[in-house]
């Protein structure tokens, strides 16, 4: 870890003082996220670049045909790889998996994979023999805080964008033909729900001891912290929700304690942002689909559709 990535005491005090006055350095409200800038690849399926403030992320989804696990013959394979290198921030080291990286990867994985947001049974081709193996690679290109939320959003966006080649089974289930995407329209993945992670960072401007004992509740909560905010924070919590008002994950790894009422309050408040982000994914994807449809002149191929 290089020393020059650490934040100075002056900056820290300035930041905390600003928070006490109800201000964030980038003039956002405390519960406001940065506006995501999305660019979807026009030429290939499942490549997405996402700018979230200065945090930059590239996501690539790929599909291969593989053999299922023996105890789950009907389920496809799905994995999420998280690549955090020192390219994003000098603090991260390239050599081995740091705890930070494992934690981030695991929170994203739990949000998406363990909550069954991808229908794995729909990835089955021949039971026990051949299934689709879907891999999501998250490459963080620049770090300005909040990898978890950005990673989860980016992965869900890319999964919506991705399409796998069509397949037909021949010889009574013995062989399969993988159709080229130019030959037959590729098929999208079946996604059951869209988990959205929201990270709250908290700061305790008052006395640590009375805070721990629960005598005063004056912690400050910030949504979507950027790099400085993340370095100064004294604790964080990840809340993962979906549009159906289901709580998918709560994860608080250390940091100053938060009171139960605040937790409830935060999770209820999060619903609004979850709805907005889910809507955004749907909107961007359907716009993209429409453009592609017009560009490829698919209308001309639809012979019998309007009869």
């Amino acid at each position: 870890m290089s020393r020059n990535t650490e934040i100075s005491t002056n900056e820290r005090t300035y930041f905390i003082e600003a928070l006490k006055c109800g201000l964030r350095l980038d003039s956002r409200r405390f519960d406001e996220i940065r506006e995501p800038q999305i660019s979807l690849s026009k030429t290939e399926f499942g490549y997405v670049e996402l700018d979230w403030g200065l945090t930059k992320l590239a996501v690539r989804v790929s599909a291969q045909i593989g053999k299922p696990y023996e105890d789950r013959p009907f389920e496809g394979l799905f994995q999420i790889n998280c690549e955090i290198s020192s390219m994003a921030w000098a603090h991260f080291d390239n050599s081995k998996n740091s705890n930070e990286e494992i934690l981030i990867a695991r929170i994203i994985e739990k949000a998406i994979r363990r909550s069954n947001s991808l229908d794995l049974e729909a990835l089955c081709i021949i039971a026990g023999e051949k299934v689709w193996n879907i891999t999501v690679d998250l490459n963080f290109l620049n770090f300005d805080g909040n990898f978890v939320d950005v990673g989860c959003f980016g992965a869900m966006l890319a999964l919506h964008h991705f399409k796998k080649p069509d397949i037909s089974i021949v010889n009574g289930g013995e062989d399969i033909i993988v159709h080229d995407i130019d030959e037959r329209q590729p098929v999208p993945l079946s996604i059951l729900h869209v988990p959205i992670c929201l990270t709250y960072s908290f700061y305790n401007p008052g006395n640590k001891e009375s805070n721990l004992k629960g005598e005063d509740d004056d912690e400050i909560y910030l949504l979507d912290a950027n790099l400085i905010e993340e370095q100064v924070r004294e604790g964080s919590i990840v809340v993962t929700l979906n549009k159906n008002r289901e709580l998918i994950q709560l994860s608080k790894n250390g940091g100053i304690p938060i009171s139960a009422n605040v937790l409830l309050d935060l999770s209820f408040k999060s619903m609004k942002i979850v709805d907005e982000l889910t809507e955004l994914i749907k909107k961007v994807i359907s716009k993209h689909e429409k453009e592609r449809y017009e560009e490829l002149n698919l209308k001309m191929l639809e012979v019998g559709a309007d009869r």
Partner: peptide, 15 residues
């Protein structure tokens, strides 16, 4: 107190 220092939920539960 009612202060939570550790929190871990791994599966779905209605909000």
């Amino acid at each position: 107190s009612e202060k939570l220092s550790l929190l871990m939920l791994e599966d779905k539960i209605p909000l």
